[in-house]
Amino acid sequence: MSSKPAEPHNSWNPRPTGEPGTRGDAAGPAGLDARSRQLLRTLIAGYIRSGEPVGSQVLARQSGLDVSPATIRNILADLEEAGLLSAPHTSAGRIPTARGYRLFVDSLLQVRPLPDAELARLRDELPAGFGTQALLGSASELLSAMSHFVGVVSVPRREQFAFRRVDFVSIDAQRVLAILVFSDNEVQNRIIHTRHAYESSELEQIANYLNHHFAGRSLADIRATLLSELRSDRTEMERLLSRSVELAEQVLVPGNDDMVLAGQTRLMGVQELSDVDRLRELFEAFARKREILQLLERTVQAPGVRIFIGEETGLAPLEGVSLVTAPYVAGGQVLGVLGVIGPTRMAYGRVIPVVQAAADALGDAFGRETRR
Results as ranks from 00 to 15, higher is better:
residue 372 R to L: 15
residue 287 A to M: 04
residue 220 A to S: 15
residue 29 P to I: 12
residue 83 G to E: 13
residue 317 P to I: 07
residue 226 L to H: 04
residue 65 L to A: 05
residue 53 P to W: 01
residue 282 L to G: 06
residue 25 D to N: 14
residue 47 Y to C: 04
residue 248 A to Y: 01
residue 60 A to H: 10
residue 91 S to R: 00
residue 294 Q to A: 13
residue 263 G to I: 01
residue 268 M to R: 05
residue 158 R to Q: 13
residue 284 E to P: 00
residue 237 M to L: 13
residue 287 A to F: 10
residue 267 L to D: 01
residue 71 T to M: 08
residue 325 T to V: 11
residue 213 H to S: 14
residue 20 P to R: 09
residue 160 Q to E: 12
residue 27 A to D: 14
residue 228 S to P: 00
residue 55 G to E: 01
residue 143 L to N: 05
residue 212 H to P: 00
residue 130 F to W: 02
residue 337 V to P: 01
residue 19 E to C: 08
residue 127 P to G: 10
residue 207 A to G: 12
residue 323 L to R: 00
residue 77 A to E: 10
residue 166 V to L: 10
residue 11 S to I: 00
residue 203 L to V: 03
residue 356 Q to P: 06
residue 265 T to I: 03
residue 161 F to Q: 06
residue 322 S to K: 04
residue 43 L to E: 03
residue 329 V to E: 11
residue 241 L to S: 11
residue 176 V to Q: 05
residue 302 A to P: 00
residue 31 G to S: 06
residue 333 Q to V: 15
residue 122 L to K: 02
residue 319 E to L: 00
residue 129 G to H: 03
residue 140 S to L: 04
residue 195 R to L: 10
residue 323 L to V: 15
residue 224 A to G: 09
residue 5 P to Y: 13
residue 204 E to Q: 14
residue 47 Y to M: 01
residue 174 Q to C: 07
residue 23 R to K: 07
residue 36 S to C: 09
residue 335 L to M: 09
residue 206 I to W: 06
residue 203 L to F: 03
residue 20 P to F: 13
residue 196 H to W: 09
residue 189 N to P: 06
residue 112 R to N: 11
residue 308 F to R: 00
residue 258 D to T: 00
residue 137 G to H: 02
residue 272 E to H: 03
residue 128 A to F: 10
residue 303 P to E: 08
residue 146 M to G: 07
residue 248 A to V: 04
residue 328 Y to T: 06
residue 213 H to L: 11
